[in-house]
Every structure is written in C-alpha cells, then in structure tokens.
C-alpha cells in the first residue's frame, strides 16, 4: 500500500543521505547536517525528474 511505499522510500533516502551528510555522530544533528539531509532528498528527487524528462526528450 501507499504508506508502506512511502516508508520504504524514506528508508532508502536515509540509507543514501546519512553517510553523505552525517560525520562523526554528535549529541544532536547540527543545523548544517539537518539542511544537508533535506537537500539530499530534494536534489535526489530533482535528479530523478531531470533524468526521466531528458530520457523522454532524447527518445523523441
């Protein structure tokens, strides 16, 4: 179902973005780490749309 798919995507994004954004784990997320995590998800989605659209354009 939809909720399961949403959670599965969140697991995947966390897997991708945690190493990229979090260095040595500290006592809390810094605002920089937090911003990095949000940007990581958004830019990954942007990248997916960019690639899908460009593939469509190439095909035509």
């Amino acid at each position: 179902d939809q909720k399961a798919r949403f959670h599965s995507m969140v697991h995947e994004f966390t897997d991708k973005c945690f190493d990229r954004c979090i260095g040595t784990p500290g006592n809390s997320l810094s605002s920089k780490e937090s911003a990095c995590l949000g940007n990581c998800v958004e830019r990954f989605l942007d990248t997916t749309f960019f690639i899908v659209n460009r593939l469509e354009a190439i095909k035509q």
Partner: peptide, 13 residues
C-alpha cells in the same frame, strides 16, 4: 542521529 535523520527525511519527502 539515524532516527533523527529518518524523521528529517520523512518530513522533507
């Protein structure tokens, strides 16, 4: 931090 990251990412998504 992993659980916190999961929450931040869940909200962003």
């Amino acid at each position: 931090r992993y659980l916190e990251s999961w929450n931040v990412i869940s909200k962003a998504y």
